[in-house]
Amino acid sequence: MAHLSYVNVFAKDVVALSGFYQRVFGFKEIEAIRSPIFRGLDTGKSSLGFNALDAYELLHLGEFSDTRGVKFLLNIDVDSQADVDRMVPVALEAGATLVKPPYVTYYNWYQSVLLDPEGNVFRINFMM
């Protein structure tokens, strides 16, 4: 069966953006795969990668490098409602922007919607 190994984010500053996710969620860097244009973080179940904008050309994606708008949504699950409430201020202090404060969804999850320092959307979730 296939499984998700990585979600990669194109970032203007791979060091700063990966550092944001390390500070907020405590993810550890996978130092063995570090390069000048890449940082990887171990999330426990899969990995989160940050590619410098140079990777557009490396991957032959140059014609797509100027796309605008929300193109993906990172979902980061935590262990409790209290963890969502605790982590939102941590994210804000680290440079995130609050889009929607913690709330109960119609599908019975407790979550908050935020933007990271480069404007990428992420949610902090607890599945009730």
Rank of each mutant, 00 (worst) to 15 (best):
F10S: 02
L4K: 01
G95N: 03
G49L: 03
I37N: 14
R123V: 13
P89A: 07
E57L: 07
G95I: 05
K100S: 11
L73K: 00
V9Y: 01
V113F: 14
F72A: 15
I76R: 01
G19S: 08
I76E: 05
F50S: 02
S18L: 05
Y110Q: 02
T105R: 00
F64K: 09
S46W: 05
E93I: 09
I33Q: 11
A11F: 04
D42L: 02
P101C: 07
V84G: 00
Q81F: 09
L98N: 02
D77L: 10
A52R: 01
L58W: 06
Q111I: 11
N8V: 14
S65F: 05
P89Y: 06
Y21C: 03
V84H: 01
Y21D: 11
V9L: 09
E31Y: 05
L115E: 12
L17N: 02
G49N: 02
G119Y: 09
P102Q: 07
V14K: 00
E93H: 06
F126N: 03
K12P: 08
G95S: 03
I124Q: 00
S18N: 04
D85R: 01
I33A: 11
P102G: 07
I30G: 03
K28C: 11
E29W: 04
G40A: 15
A32W: 12
G19W: 12
L48W: 04
Q81K: 04
D66F: 09
N75S: 12
I37L: 06
R86F: 13
V113A: 06
M127G: 12
F10R: 00
L61E: 13
M128P: 09
F50N: 00
G119M: 03
V104F: 09
A2P: 12
S80A: 10
V9D: 02
R39G: 06
S80M: 05
P36D: 15
V7N: 05
D13N: 04
N51T: 07
K28L: 13
L114V: 15
V99E: 13
F10V: 10
A11W: 02
